[in-house]
Measured scan of single mutants.
Amino acid sequence: DLSALRVEEVQNVINAMQKILECPICLELIKEPVSTKCDHIFCKFCMLKLLNQKKGPSQCPLCKNDITKRSLQESTRFSQLVEELLKIICAFQLDTGLEYANSYNFAKKENNSPEHLKDEVSIIQSMGYRNRAKRLLQSEPENPSLQETSLSVQLSNLGTVRTLRTKQRIQPQRTSVYIELGSDSSEDTVNKATYCSVGDQELLQITPQGTRDEISLDSAKKAACEFSETDVTNTEHHQPSNNDLNTTEKRAAERHPEKYQGSSVSNLHVEPCGTNTHASSLQHENSSLLLTKDRMNVEKAEF
Rank of each mutant, 00 (worst) to 15 (best):
I89S: 08
I25D: 07
E32K: 12
H40G: 11
E32M: 07
Q53P: 09
L5A: 10
S156M: 03
R135H: 07
K134G: 14
S197L: 10
S219H: 05
D119V: 15
A91Y: 11
L136E: 14
E28Q: 09
L50Q: 05
P257T: 09
S152M: 01
Y129C: 04
S228W: 00
Q80V: 06
L137H: 11
D218P: 03
G274M: 10
C38E: 12
L203V: 10
C23W: 00
C196S: 05
K250V: 13
D119L: 09
P257Q: 10
E99V: 01
D95E: 12
E99L: 15
K87W: 12
Q138M: 04
F106C: 07
I20C: 04
T235N: 01
D39C: 03
K167L: 13
Y260A: 13
R6F: 04
C26L: 15
T292N: 02
T160V: 11
N12G: 02
I67N: 11
E74C: 03
K221I: 00
E142N: 05
Y104D: 14
C38M: 15
K134P: 09
E142C: 05
A91I: 15
D95C: 15
T68I: 02
E285C: 01
S263L: 02
I14E: 15
S264V: 05
L268A: 06
G210S: 07
K54T: 06
C38D: 13
S58R: 05
T233K: 13
Q283F: 00
S79V: 08
S156N: 05
I25T: 09
E115D: 13
T36F: 02
A107S: 02
I123H: 14
Q283V: 15
L21E: 15
A223G: 02
V34A: 06
G182I: 00
P257H: 03
I25R: 02
I88D: 15
S152Y: 00
N267I: 02
I206R: 15
E226V: 01
N234L: 05
L50P: 08
L29Y: 02
A252T: 04
R255Y: 01
R70G: 09
P24G: 00
S197G: 12
P141C: 12
S216E: 03
V7F: 07
M17S: 14
E9L: 05
N52D: 09
M17T: 12
R162A: 04
Q209D: 13
I124H: 12
E9C: 07
S126K: 08
C63S: 13
H256Y: 12
T247V: 12
Y195S: 14
S71N: 01
S139E: 03
G199K: 05
K87I: 03
Q80R: 06
K221N: 08
L85E: 14
A101E: 05
N112S: 13
N243C: 14
L51V: 06
S156E: 13
D200C: 05
Q147T: 06
V265D: 13
T211Q: 15
E271F: 01
K108N: 13
L94Y: 07
T211A: 06
L21V: 05
E202M: 00
T76L: 15
V10E: 15
T36N: 02
A253S: 13
Q147F: 01
V82Y: 01
A220G: 05
E302G: 13
V270A: 01
M17Q: 14
A301G: 02
R132P: 03
S197K: 01
P114S: 02
N243H: 04
L158N: 10
S145V: 11
I215D: 11
E110D: 12
E180H: 05
I215S: 13
N191I: 00
F303Y: 08
K49R: 10
Q80G: 02
P24Y: 01
V298I: 06
L204V: 06
S79F: 07
T36Y: 01
A220S: 10
L85T: 12
L155D: 12
Q261N: 05
R295C: 04
V7I: 07
A220D: 03
S35I: 06
F92Y: 10
Q209K: 13
F42Y: 07
T166E: 09
I41H: 04
K44L: 04
N15P: 15
T275I: 13
L217D: 14
N15F: 04
E236S: 01
L136M: 11
N52G: 07
D294L: 00
K167R: 13
S139F: 04
E202S: 10
S263G: 13
L2V: 15
T207V: 10
I215C: 14
V10A: 08
F106W: 12
K19C: 00
Q138R: 05
A223S: 11
Q147S: 10
C225I: 04
E83S: 06
F303L: 11
Q205G: 05
E142K: 11
Q11M: 02
L50H: 09
T149G: 12
L48R: 10
I30Y: 10
S35Q: 12
E28M: 12
Q53L: 09
L137N: 04
N297I: 12
S126A: 10
R165Y: 10
E226K: 12
N15W: 02
F78D: 01
E258L: 01
G262L: 03
E254H: 05
Y260H: 08
L51R: 07
I25P: 15
T247A: 03
L50A: 05
V82E: 11
I88L: 01
K37P: 02
P257N: 07
Q201V: 07
Y129P: 14
Q11K: 10
E229R: 11
T277R: 15
G210N: 05
S145I: 08
E28T: 11
S126Y: 15
A133W: 07
G128F: 01
